[in-house]
Design a binder for these strands. Structure first.
Length: 559
DNA sequence: ACAGACCGCGCC
DNA sequence: AAAGGGCGCGGTCTGT
């Protein structure tokens, strides 16, 4: 195993894992009478104290931390019953992080599985949440898979204590604790946001669809505008009936028209001189809106004025979230006019600009790059310093370095960067080499990339592809943990405001819906949170994490 | 009829 | 301008 972060800095003095994200653990305990919670000591052993569940929910201090099997199983029910939890330790997410740290990716991560591994017993498969019992109780997922006779409370306590030991045995327990706290807080936020939903005007959305596509049609029937464009495409191909949704058919049509193209990607088509290109590009754009975010989508995903994406925290290997259905992280720009604050409210939209290059600067501690990362526009600062002010070249070079591009336009800027920012480029190239050799790389806080499969061979394209993946992983995964930490801090501070709700999170962007009179406080919380996230991850670093913040009535007006 | 691969494009 | 990282989704196409 190869570490990629050299020049380690001790961040413990600045207190990751000991600050706002940590608290006194409380353990939930199942009971036939509707539930009690059992208290845990700091090392995970039960103290014997018990409190009724509803009392615990209403009387919990903000620093109370709930230790439970799986936020996905426990929290939606609590939220539906009006409960809300400040902090938690999610045993399943933490188990996945710890297994990954040891290079044991994809093993079952449930409490039952962890408990069984702890006792050298056969490990049960994880239960798909979709296949869980019809009326799950808070602890059903724990109880059902544990061997008969094993007390679920003891199992949770034992796994929790074991995880604390394993965290303490990592290379930097302070960092890993912060990762666990942020991952767990993120899971709370994810299920809260699914319950809350993003304010979505079905009327505005429908009006936009009609403007773009024509009147609504029944399912399976192409709207008027698509029919027209399809006819124009046929005409341009001199009557040849062409299915614009079929890349193979479009390719054949161009071949018949004497135009040899290697694919039907829109940027390839744009270079082709043929009358079918224009209607084809228009068709593809609109057909995409119709298929992915049309009337059927609205019917399925928008209810009571809210779009409710189902977030999957930890759904991406880099620690980014995924969504399940509805394409929640891909709301097209042309439809963002439908995201509207309700009466008397505003949306505060904040996104962290140029996050990945800034994290590269912080990770590598490259002096020149760190200086550039103090600027509001980091690409411009790099350009001024090293590219004679040519911002486009600076950006292409930096992105190419982080994504593993070697040729094309990026080649020359890359050589400049290697000369001027050697520590930053070395970090990336070391990560790539580790990946090509089949090794593991980690994020700043210790999230670890998946190992190679059994059938992996250290040859040509496969090795280079893995090198690009691990090269990008160190940056993308660290960006994801910065953003998660930001989210966690903002979430906890927003509880000080009445009726301010987090409604959207997408990789490096947060949207808060709040009463108009609270807007300035929300803005302050977002900025303070970004500052705090940088401090928690890196202690004192010259790197800044500037935000673009807009206070708007409509998402389309942000930015 | 259904499953899975591939394609292309939306987002970051 | 179009090479390189991560996704979800809906379309077609191919194989069973």
């Amino acid at each position: 195993m190869t570490r990629t972060s050299s020049n380690r800095r001790d961040v413990r003095t600045s207190g990751p894992g000991r600050g706002r994200l940590q608290g006194v653990p409380v353990l939930l305990v199942p009971a036939a009478d509707g539930g009690t919670v059992q208290h845990l000591a700091g090392n995970g052993t039960p103290t014997g104290d018990r409190t009724p569940l509803d009392t615990a929910l209403t009387a919990a201090r903000p620093e109370t931390r709930w230790v439970w099997a799986d936020t996905a199983q426990c929290y939606p029910q609590l939220l539906a019953a009006g409960g809300r939890v400040g902090r938690c330790h999610d045993l399943a997410l933490t188990e996945a992080l710890l297994l990954g740290y040891d290079g044991r990716w994809g093993r079952p991560r449930s409490v039952a599985a962890a408990w069984s591994r702890l006792h050298d017993l056969p490990v049960p498969d994880d239960v798909d949440p979709g296949e869980a019992t019809a009326e799950p109780t808070l602890f059903e997922p724990v109880r059902s898979a544990l061997p008969a006779g094993v007390d679920p409370v003891s199992a949770v306590a034992a796994v929790y204590a074991d995880q604390l030991r394993r965290i303490a045995a990592t290379e930097d327990p302070g960092r890993f604790s912060l990762l666990v706290a942020a991952e767990s807080a993120g899971a709370l936020a994810a299920f809260e946001m699914t319950a809350t939903g993003l304010p979505w005007s079905a009327e505005v959305h429908a009006a936009k669809l009609t403007e773009l596509l024509g009147a609504r049609t029944s399912a399976g029937v192409r709207p008027a505008r698509l029919v027209e464009l399809s006819a124009l495409i046929d005409a341009a191909f001199e009557g040849r009936r062409t299915n614009p949704d079929s890349p193979a058919d479009v390719l054949a049509a161009f071949t018949a028209a004497g135009r040899r193209i290697e694919s039907t990607r829109s940027w390839v088509l744009r270079k082709v001189d043929h009358p079918a290109v224009e209607p084809l590009l228009a068709y593809k754009k609109l057909a995409r809106i119709h298929a992915a975010n049309g009337w059927a989508w609205q019917e399925r995903w928008v209810r009571e004025g809210r779009f409710r994406p189902e977030y999957v925290p930890g759904g991406v290997v880099s620690g980014r979230w995924a969504t399940r259905g509805g394409g929640g992280l891909q709301i097209p720009k042309v439809l963002r006019g439908a995201v509207r604050a309700t009466l008397g409210h505003i949306l505060v939209v904040a996104d962290a600009g140029q996050l990945e290059p800034r994290l590269l600067a912080a990770l590598s501690e490259d002096p020149g790059m760190a200086t550039a990362a103090q600027a509001e526009d980091m690409y411009a600062a790099i350009a001024a310093r090293s590219f004679g002010g040519d911002r486009a070249r600076a950006k292409v070079g930096l992105l190419g370095a982080m994504y593993g591009q070697v040729g094309g336009q990026a080649a020359a800027p890359l050589a400049v960067l290697r000369q001027e920012y050697p520590a930053a480029l070395r970090l990336l190239e070391e990560a790539a080499r580790t990946g090509e050799d089949g090794g593991l790389v980690r994020s700043h806080l210790g999230r670890t990339c998946p190992p190679v499969g059994d059938d992996w061979v250290r040859t040509g394209p496969a090795a280079r592809a893995r090198g690009r993946f691990t090269r990008n992983f160190v940056v993308q995964a660290t960006a994801a943990e910065w953003a998660l930490t930001w989210l966690a801090v903002v979430r906890s501070q927003l509880t000080t405001l009445d009726a301010a709700e987090l409604v959207f999170f997408a990789h490096d962007e947060l949207v808060v819906h709040a009463p108009a009179e609270a807007s300035e406080q929300v803005v302050r919380i977002l900025y303070d949170g970004a500052l705090e996230a940088g401090r928690l991850l890196f202690g004192s670093t010259p790197v800044r994490f500037p935000l673009d913040v807009s206070t708007v009535g409509c998402y389309a007006d942000a930015g």
